[in-house]
Computed example of a mutant assay.
Amino acid sequence: MSPKRQGYLYVLITMCIWGGFTLTARLSANWGISAWDLTALRFVLAFIILMPILIYKKDTAFLCKKEPFILAMLGGVIYCLTAYSAFHYAPAAHAAIFLNGCIPLCTAVAAYVLFQQSFDRHTWISLAIMVISLGAMSFLMYLQTGQAFGLGDLLFFLSAIWWGIFTVLLRQWKLSAWHAMAGVAVWSAIIYVPIYLLFLPKHLTEPDPVHLISQVLFHGIFVVIIATLTYVEAIKRLGAFKTGSIVTLAPFIAAIIAVPLLNEPLNIAIVCGLAGMGIGALQPWRWLVHQDPLQQQLNEQKKQPD
C-alpha cells in the first residue's frame, strides 16, 4: 500500500472514532452515565494499558516534566469533564457546532494570545463565516424557543477553548504523539481518579453494566489511544491541512446520523449552524491550494542556510 493510501486509511479510522465519540458521548448521557464516572473510568483503563508499556520500555522520564502534566489537565481532565457534561444538556448537533466547529477558531485565538501568532487571511474569513452563522442560528433559535443558547452550548464552547489551548501548547512544546498521548492519560489518572474516589459523586450502579463497559472500552482505548496515533500518522502521509479538513467532517456527519439514530431534533436553526460552522472549520476554499501549507513551510525551511 502506498503512503498516500495508508494516509487515507488512517484518516478513515480517525474519522470513525471521532464521529463515534460524538454519538457515544450523547448515548452515555441518555444511558445515565455521569461525566464524573466516564472521565474516571476512561483514564483508569488507559493508565492500566499504557503504564506497564512505559515501564517496560523504560520511558517514564518525560512524565517528570511540566509539559505532560499541563497538557493532561487541559486536554485530559478539564476537557473531558466539560465535554461529557455538555452532552447531558445539548444534542449531538450542538456538539458539532459549538465544540468541533469552534476548535479551529479557539486554536487560532489561543495561538495569538499565548504566542502572538497573528491571524492569516483564511482565519479572518473563517471567523466572519462562524460569527455570521452563529448569529443567524441564535436568532432563529430565539424565535423558535425564546432562548438563543443553553448551558450545554456554553460547556461545549468551553471545551473548544481548552482543546484550542491544548493544541497550541502541544505544537509549541513539540512532544511526540506517543509522549503526548501517554502523558495525558497517565497524569489525568494520577490527578483526577483520587479526587473522584474521595470527593465526587458516583453513579456506577445505575447504568446498565453492558452500557458502562462499552463506553469505557471505546473512550479509554479507541479515543484516548488509537485515534491519537492514527491522526498523527495520517498527518505524516497527507499533510496537516488535508488530514485536519477531512477528519473535521466526522462530528458533523455524526450529528446528522444522530437525528434518526437517537431521535434528536433537526430544524432550520441547527442546519444553519452546522453549515456555517462546517464551512468555517473546513475552509474549503483552501483546497484550491495545490500544495499543503505545512509542506510549503517545510520546503521554505529547507531552502534557508544552516
Rank of each mutant, 00 (worst) to 15 (best):
S214Q: 13
Q215I: 00
M181W: 01
L200T: 07
P251W: 03
V168T: 14
L212A: 07
P194F: 04
A227D: 00
L249Q: 02
L175W: 09
T228M: 15
L197I: 11
L197W: 12
I213P: 09
T205R: 15
G183R: 10
W187G: 00
A180H: 01
H211Q: 13
D208V: 01
I235M: 14
V247W: 01
I253F: 10
A258L: 01
F166V: 01
K174R: 12
T228G: 14
K242L: 15
K242W: 09
W187C: 01
F222N: 05
A234K: 05
A227E: 02
F199R: 10
I161E: 11
E233T: 00
I225T: 06
V186F: 05
R237H: 12
I225Q: 07
L175S: 10
T248F: 11
A234L: 08
W178C: 06
S214E: 12
A160K: 05
H179D: 11
I226H: 06
F252Y: 08
H211T: 09
I165N: 02
L238D: 02
G220N: 06
Q215P: 01
Q172C: 10
D208Y: 09
M181Q: 09
W163E: 12
I246S: 03
I253V: 11
H203L: 15
K242G: 04
G239Q: 03
A189K: 04
I213M: 15
G220P: 07
I190R: 10
G164K: 01
A180G: 12
Y192S: 01
M181K: 03
A180K: 10
A189Q: 06
F218C: 03
W162S: 15
L204N: 10
V216L: 08
L249I: 00
I165Q: 05
I161Q: 11
I221F: 14
W187A: 00
V193Q: 10
K202S: 14
T230F: 06
V216A: 07
Y231Q: 11
I246A: 08
S188Q: 04
I195H: 13
V232P: 05
I191K: 03
V216T: 15
L249D: 00
G183V: 04
I253P: 02
T228I: 07
S176D: 09
L238A: 02
I195Y: 12
A227S: 13
M181P: 07
W178F: 14
H219T: 10
H179P: 04
I191T: 13
F199D: 09
L238E: 06
E206Q: 15
A189T: 03
P260S: 05
F166K: 07
H179S: 10
V224S: 13
L197G: 10
F166Q: 07
P194M: 02
A250W: 02
I256P: 01
S214G: 09
T167L: 11
A180Y: 03
E206N: 13
A177S: 14
I235G: 06
I161G: 08
H211G: 07
A240W: 06
V168A: 12
V210P: 07
A240T: 14
T243H: 07
I195W: 15
I191Q: 02
A182E: 02
F241S: 04
T230E: 09
